[in-house]
Amino acid sequence: MEIVVFTKRVPVTQEEELRILEDGKAVDLRKLPHRMNDWDNYGVEEAVRMVEKGGGGVTSVAIGDAEADEVLRRAIAMGARDGFLLETEEVLHDPFARATLACNFLKKEKIPFDALFTGVQAEDDQFACFGGMLAAMLKIPYAAQVIGVDSVEKDHLVVRRELEGGLQERVKVSLPCVLSVQSGINEPRYVSIMGVRKASKVERKVFKASNYADNVKSLIEVTKWAYPPKKEGAAMIAGDVNEVCGKLLGILKEKGVYQ
């Protein structure tokens, strides 16, 4: 199988207080460290395991600025054969624009693939729709939230999709197709610094996004960035044991974990 995995470099924001700049025009991400989007990490691992078992090769593609090369090196260290950077300085907030760009690139460069993998979503924008849009544009089948690949056949895959509440559905998907890979589908291998250094010696190809700009436009626009409503520590629930018990169960119901 030839598998193309889309990988994104994202800022690490856990436990950081993010600052919105200039009256809501942008979010300050300057000092944050970056890494490969966690879901894409599972995607690369799954693809590498599939080709390790059944033959073929994995190509990692990143859309972003020159720094995004970092995730390609990591993907290669994990076992990808190629790394392609679709280079653009512009931040494309609308996944429609990113999917169109990716679609143009795959077609124009005649990149061969049996399957395209993405992570279920990116840690930063959490849109969870790039893969689906891309599949529709390429007119090939799509399965999201894939938590298991049960069989790999010549012309199709049988995969399990994660639904809600511990339920999964098993579906048959014809090849070529797009899968969005859920975290937990595997345990991604550790990539050592030595491994990344070795991977740096493998050439990564850079493609200018401006060469694939046909119809790359945003259908939605960010008008403003805003903070969520302020939360000051824990909201303390007071009262006698009956009241507290009632309020607690109320919260559990509201959160949808208790009927």
Partner: peptide, 30 residues
């Protein structure tokens, strides 16, 4: 480690140290 086969909790500590320069993955800014 070079084989990538290590316990998950050790892996997390190493990945955290790579990103945030401490094994708990607390923000470097703090």
């Amino acid at each position: 480690i070079e084989d990538g086969r290590i316990p998950a909790t050790i892996q997390k500590a190493l990945e955290n140290t790579f990103v945030q320069k401490n094994p708990w993955g607390k923000p470097r800014s703090k």
